[in-house]
Every structure is written in structure tokens, then in C-alpha cells.
């Protein structure tokens, strides 16, 4: 079967009419959004707008009540579980940095590498040169080469954020979902993170959720503003931040 013929859309990620409610509370309300292959998109929106919940839906953690979620134009993500979706090539950095605290920085990256993840494969795993070189490269990119043998739990907040981005790099997914990457970072670190994401975007499709407007401005990409679970505005950062409804949502309450 030719996959290209059956593509419903050319988008890398396609959400249409998605609804999710928690005990009657509509966290996601008729949400529609598309991400083109190779695109980087910034998602903004006040707290509780549903940004994290949207990532939960894409990665299979939360099942939507209604709506379509297509990956790469062919795969219906609502039918798959987290493991399968990760295998397909969707990686995620969490809002609260979640690294494996009791393992070393290096082992965190090793676990993230997109190699054989089966029980048998990991039981009989022996390291090889290609793998160590990839880990080496990621360590360099995220500036943790000197901390490679430290336990991830002993890293600073900013370093944990970077380690988690490093894990995404090791995972090398087609689509990266990055939830609030610069929370708790210094200005310098924030700037470096923006640079890093732009670099990553050269070869990957990326969706970044962030509050920090300087950071979003620095990314210089199309922005989507979510509010009460649906899209409020979409466009350049200047268009979105001058939108009356966006101003009302951010300042009006």
C-alpha cells in the first residue's frame, strides 16, 4: 500500500474538533490546529488554557472525548498508547522537569536513545561506539559533559531542563513537544535555550509551550494563543500580542 495515497493531510500534526472534559469541566474545547512538517510553533496562553492537556492528548496520556488527532497525515493518535506514540517518533519534555533522578546524566541519555527498547534488547545490550558518540555529542550540546557522571537529581533546575532537552535529542523524534522549557532559567540560559531550539528545528518539527514573551519573540516563529481550550488567535508574535481578545485574556482578569 502506498502510504502517500492514504494521507489525509500533509500536516505533521493535525488536530481537529478535539474535546476533553474532566468531570464536566471542558479543558479542551473544539481545538483545531495544524503543524506543517519542519515547522516550529510557539503556543502561548494563560494558566489553565489547556496547553499541557493538549500535549497529553497528542502523546496518548489523555484520550479525547471527541475529535481527530493525526500524526504525519496517516496515524490516528487517539487509538494508541504512550509507548506506541513514542515509538512512532513523538518526544516530549514535561512542564515539570522529569529526569531519572537516581541515575547519572549519562544514563539518562542512554535510556533516551532511540535504539532497541525491547526487554530482550536491553537485557543483552552492550554499548557500542556509535551510541557513545551520540551521547557524547548530546552532552556537548547541552553543556553537561563535565556533569556526565553526576546523578541527575543533583543538577540545578536549569540543568535538569537542559538534560530533558538532551533526552529529546537522544530520542531523535520527528516531532518534539516542549512544555515550558525556560521556566526557572536565567536570562542567559533562556537565550541559549532559544538558540538550541532553533538549531533543533533545522531538522525537526517542534511545538513549544512558553509564557516567557522575550523567549517567544526570540524564537521568531508563528504563535498560537490558546484560551479555555481552544485557539484564540494565531499569527506572528506582533499580530497575536496586539490582538484585542488576547490582551483582554491576559490583562482583563
Amino acid at each position: 500500500m502506498n502510504v502517500m495515497d492514504t494521507r489525509a493531510t500533509s500536516a505533521m500534526l493535525y488536530l481537529d474538533g478535539v474535546h476533553v472534559s474532566f468531570d464536566g469541566f471542558h479543558a479542551i474545547n473544539n481545538l483545531s490546529l495544524t503543524l506543517a512538517p519542519g515547522e516550529m510553533r510557539a503556543i502561548i496562553g494563560p494558566n489553565g488554557a489547556g496547553k499541557t492537556t493538549m500535549m497529553d492528548i497528542i502523546t496518548g496520556k489523555t484520550k479525547p472525548d471527541e475529535g481527530t488527532v493525526l500524526f504525519d497525515g496517516v496515524t490516528d493518535l487517539t487509538r494508541l498508547d504512550e509507548t506506541r506514540i513514542a515509538e512512532l517518533g513523538i518526544g516530549r519534555k514535561f512542564q515539570k522537569p522529569t529526569v531519572f533522578e537516581s541515575q547519572t546524566v549519562q544514563d539518562n541519555l542512554l535510556l533516551a536513545l532511540n535504539v532497541d527498547h525491547s526487554v530482550k534488547g536491553t537485557l543483552f545490550w552492550r554499548g557500542n561506539k556509535a551510541e557513545s558518540e551520540r551521547i557524547e555529542k548530546v552532552l556537548e550540546i547541552i553543556r553537561l559533559t563535565d556533569a556526565r557522571n553526576r546523578l541527575a537529581g543533583s543538577l540545578s533546575h536549569g540543568q535538569k531542563q537542559w538534560l530533558e532537552i538532551g533526552m529529546l535529542l537522544a530520542q531523535d523524534p520527528k516531532l518534539l513537544l516542549v512544555d515550558e522549557p525556560v521556566a526557572g532559567m536565567t536570562d542567559v540560559e533562556t537565550h541559549l535555550t532559544a538558540e538550541l531550539l532553533k538549531e533543533i528545528n533545522k531538522t525537526h518539527t517542534v511545538m513549544v509551550v512558553e509564557h516567557d514573551m522575550t523567549f517567544v519573540r526570540e524564537l521568531g516563529v508563528k504563535v498560537t494563543c490558546l484560551h479555555e481550550g481552544s485557539v484564540l488567535a494565531e499569527g506572528t508574535i506582533d499580530q497575536v500580542s496586539s490582538n484585542d481578545r488576547v490582551i483582554e485574556v491576559y490583562l482583563g482578569r
Binding site: T98, Q103, T122, M167
Partner: peptide, 17 residues
Amino acid sequence: KVLIAIRDAESRTRFLG
């Protein structure tokens, strides 16, 4: 290492595939 990852952060481990 995978077992320890599951022990410490089960859901994170799933998201790594």
C-alpha cells in the same frame, strides 16, 4: 536501568517508548 527508571518515574519511561 530501565527498571530503575520505571521505579522512579513510570510514566516518563513510557514516553521514551
